[in-house]
Amino acid sequence: MKSKIEFWDDFFKGSRLACARLITKVENAPALVPEIRDRIIPCLRGAVRIGITGPPGVGKSTVTASLAGLAVKAGRKIGIIAVDPSSPFTGGAFLGDRVRMQNLIGNPNVFIRSQASREGHGGLSPTTPYVADILDAFGFERILIETVGVGQAELDVLGCADLVVLVLQPGTGDVIQALKAGIIEVADLILVNKADMPGLESLLDALKFLFDMNARPKAKPIPPILTASALNDQGIDELQAELEKLIEGQASSGFLKQKKLARLEGEIKAAIQNEIWEKFRAAAGPEADIAEAAKRLDDDGRSPYDYIRDLGRRVSLKFTTENPHGEHRP
């Protein structure tokens, strides 16, 4: 199949603009995703993906920038994906994370990409995992993935990142209650940022109480709890050291590999859903006009399954082993 992307050579020669343009293609041109995945996956170099998540305003961007600054000083190449929410009404997004990352701008060993969450409702954009892979293949060794400010159930970062840092701040004791069953379960490390603010002790007490109650899946160890003041560059060295320790442990236990396999599994499932949907839509023709069907179902007071059964009698999808790449792709 002929490539529809004319700048692959530039990408592999290390052009930052080509890297940025490839990310845009992944975001804006779903039809090109298979080609991009075909080329990128064999070139993955095993970058570790670190998710930075937490409620709005706790300092995720500042922590991310400080961490990246330290890693760069240690000679690492760092990719940052900073996700901010898209408006469900207009589709627009205000991407403001770079304001907190001024120390990194212009550094050739850092690549920052802001992403709008678009159709993603789990704290990331649906294309964030692909962007992480592009940055990995481009040569970045650690990918920091900063989620939108999250509440209880935005857990996409669990699938996308190898390990998750949950950032909290003092004065949010009640937040802990809310987080009990949610994002706190996915944290591999908890960072209490803005530790110079009042309320640090009670937050640490609340966290300790929470883990004493064993509010965790059995398989997951209790996460280390660190304190920091990222704006004053305090506690970031310790965070960095602890993260490297965790990464080492995960790599040697095979956990990183497991994570990678789980991501691939998820992508396979999503790709199958997508392929079948496309085939179905092509085969079913105007019947697949879902909006029209919804209107009729509503008028008749029928359930969607009624419609699907009816459709299933008339449309059948046949799969053969011939022509494995399909030819319907635009």
Binding site: G92, A93, L95, R98, V99, I105, R113
Partner: peptide, 27 residues
């Protein structure tokens, strides 16, 4: 943003180099 665009806000006191550097990464 309200018109449906994605806006990367860089803020105050940027150098031309920093602005174009960011524009490249953000495409």
């Amino acid at each position: 943003v309200e018109a449906g665009m994605e806006v990367v806000y860089l803020g105050l006191r940027q150098t031309p180099e920093a602005i174009v550097h960011a524009a490249v990464e953000e495409d």
